[in-house]
Structures are given as C-alpha cells and as structure tokens.
Design a protein around this nucleic acid. Sequence first.
DNA 1: CTTTTTTTGTAGCGCTCATTACAAAATCCT
DNA 2: AGGATTTTGTAATGAGCGCTACAAAAAAAG
Lengths: 205, 205
Amino acid sequence: MSATKKVSTRGRPRAFDKEEALAKAQALFHAKGYDALSVADLTEAIGINPPSFYAAFGSKAELYGAALKRYEEKEGLDISGALAPDRPLDEGVATLLRQAADNYGSGAAPGCMVIEGARGTADQQACSQARRMLDMSRAVIDAAIAGREPERAELITDYIMMTMAGLSASARNGVPAERLRAIAAIASTQLSHHIEGIAPKGTKQ
Amino acid sequence: MSATKKVSTRGRPRAFDKEEALAKAQALFHAKGYDALSVADLTEAIGINPPSFYAAFGSKAELYGAALKRYEEKEGLDISGALAPDRPLDEGVATLLRQAADNYGSGAAPGCMVIEGARGTADQQACSQARRMLDMSRAVIDAAIAGREPERAELITDYIMMTMAGLSASARNGVPAERLRAIAAIASTQLSHHIEGIAPKGTKQ
DNA sequence: CTTTTTTTGTAGCGCTCATTACAAAATCCT
DNA sequence: AGGATTTTGTAATGAGCGCTACAAAAAAAG
C-alpha cells in the first residue's frame, strides 16, 4: 500500500522504524526548536547511534525539513477548506483562526512549528526552510482572499498572518486553548464590518 | 549629574566607553537574538578582548539582562501613558497598538526585543529574563484594564498581548511599518467592537 | 560456502562556544 | 620614588556541537 515502503533490499536490515523515528524527531523539533535540540538528543530519543542517524536522514537540517513537511501534512491547518470560495469570507477567516487556536493550544507542543521555526535564531538554513513553508501558506491564504477582496487582499492576509503568529506566540507563552479560542473570537468577529467599513468605495486610501 | 558615573578610581583606566558598549550590545542582541550572537561577535563589535568583556559585564547572560533593561528604558512602549485612566479604553488600546506597530517596524532591528527574547530557543536563563520582563509588562497592562473592565480584563489583556506578539513577529518577517500600522488599526477596531458588542450591560459603551 | 551490500557500534574528528590564567601595562595613593 | 590596584592583550581551557572513519555484524545474491 504505502508507496515508499521498500520490501526487500540487500544488506543488513535497519534496526529501527524510520517513520516512527521521524515522528519522534518532529515532535521534539516542535517542542524544543531547532537550535535547542541536538543530534545527541535526537539519537538518544530514537535509540540509535549517530552513524545510523546520518545514514537514514542525511543531516540534522535535512531531518528538520522532513519533520516540517510531516508536521504540515499531519498537523497543519486546513486553509483551503476554511477559506473555500463557497463560504462567506468572514466566516472562513473565523473558522481558520478558531482552528489555529485549537491547534496551537492543544497537542503535545504549543504553537505552530512552522511559524516558530521561521524565526529561527542561530541556524540560517533551518530558519529559511520554515520561512519558505510559511510564505507558501501565506500565498494560499492570499490567493483565497484575492478571489473575493482583490483590493484588500494584502491587508487582510497581513492581519490573518499577524493573528496566527500572535496566537502561536501566546500558546508558547502558556495561554491555554480555551483562552486562545476567546482571543481568536475577538480577532475574527465583525472582521467583515471592518473590511466593508473603512474604505467602502474600494479605494486603497 | 549622572549618579552612576565613577569620576576617579584607582588602577588602570578602562580604555572603552561602557555605556557605548552596552548600547552596541543591546542593538546586536535585538537584531540577532541571544543564541545567534556570540561573545566573540560582541567583543569584536565593541573592540575589546574577552577579559575586558567579562571584567566589565560579568557574563554574556548578565550583559543580556542589562541590554534588556536598557531596551525597555530607551525604546520601550509607554504603556501607562497609552492606557492612562482618563482616556477611553478603546482609544488607549488603539494608541498602544499603534505605538507597537511604529516601534516594531522602525528602528535598526525589527520586532520587540523582549517579546522575541522571551521565546528563546537554546539558553534558558536568557529566555527567562525576557519572560520575566514580558510578564511585568503584561501585569501593567492588566492592571490598567482591570480598573475599567474588571470582568474582561484577562481576556482583553490576552488579546493585546497576542496582537503585540503578532505585530512583532510580522515585523521580523519583513512587513514594513506602514502595513503594521494598518494591521494594528484593524486589531484595535476589532477589540472595541467586541467590547461594546458582547456585554453592553452596565459598562461604558 | 563466498561475495556483496547495507547497517551497526565504538570512538573520535575539527570546530565553535563561553569563560579564564597569566603577566605586562597604566593609573592612583603615600 | 614605591607599592597598590585595576585593566589590558595573549593564549588557552574544557565542554558541547554536527558529523564521520572504521571495522564488525547481518542480511541477500552468487
């Protein structure tokens, strides 16, 4: 079934489950961040030695990239679903922010792994990997909004990205999920009033 | 005038200006973060050698603490002024968020040094120093709001902290000051709509 | 069996980090 | 002048980092 499963190869078989190890690594990267998590931490958590680690994952940065991809696939928000073109825009934004609050506040590690990884401190390669993913998410949001509010798409997207980053930071600072939801509710209620209210003539001011 | 200025001490005089060095260190910590800035970077920027560095500032973490303090004094927001009790609350919040947008988006380094430092990755001591300052700022905001909206103080403070963190993150992600101001404008109108809209009973409208 | 291929564990590489011994240099006090 | 005291530059410390050489071990292929 799984397309990536090698059934029979030559040589000594791997003594650990690679997907399982990736899952562990992703959780650790999410919880501790790229810099604070050492290869020694990873190999110890997985239960392997450095050579097995590098044979399987290439490098710490490569594994981080794979972990980011896995995170987005397994735990990422459903942006396209929330902002589907057949739903009112303000309702879609509210759904998206509510999803973010739930997602960032629950689960093993608080906050968004991509958003937090994108402001990486030390390692530039790891940071830019997360930045690229964040930029792509922004592009998806922007495209969904540009279909309905082409004049104010950048502003609305800016506002959504700001709010998601703020929710992620608040989650990291220990604000529990229910309070995050209440914050997200403020951020999204009557957003349409604001959008329609500030510049009703369609001018960019 | 200056109370901390030692005019005449014994021993060989220091060959560099300590306050000037602190200013440089604060700017560098703000721009690059604690982890990504090494002691070697600092001594090179100041133009001194490690022993002079440690004699003057104690340690990297101590210098970071002094830099945080200096940042708050010289570049911090005027929270008490913005949320002064003689002004309408929504107007005060709008002023505060507008200040944050201006502050985070302009100047040498983007974002808030305290907010960004509070989610430090590797060094726990540095992170908790920034966290403590952030908690104190939150307490000031919370106290100013509790005087007017005791029932919803936590929620409103949560929302303001989330927005400031989001603005700081957006600034770090390259959003320019004028767009930050537009985002902050949406955020503050959202809040006043919500405050007036949800519970009009017995409180100021 | 032998050969080939891959993974394994041990042990260590070079590097950067924050920090410090040490002695010479520069200033004040007597 | 002659200590006393503090800063200076040189050089190195131990610890941790990401990463790898190497040879033994385990499987398939001949």
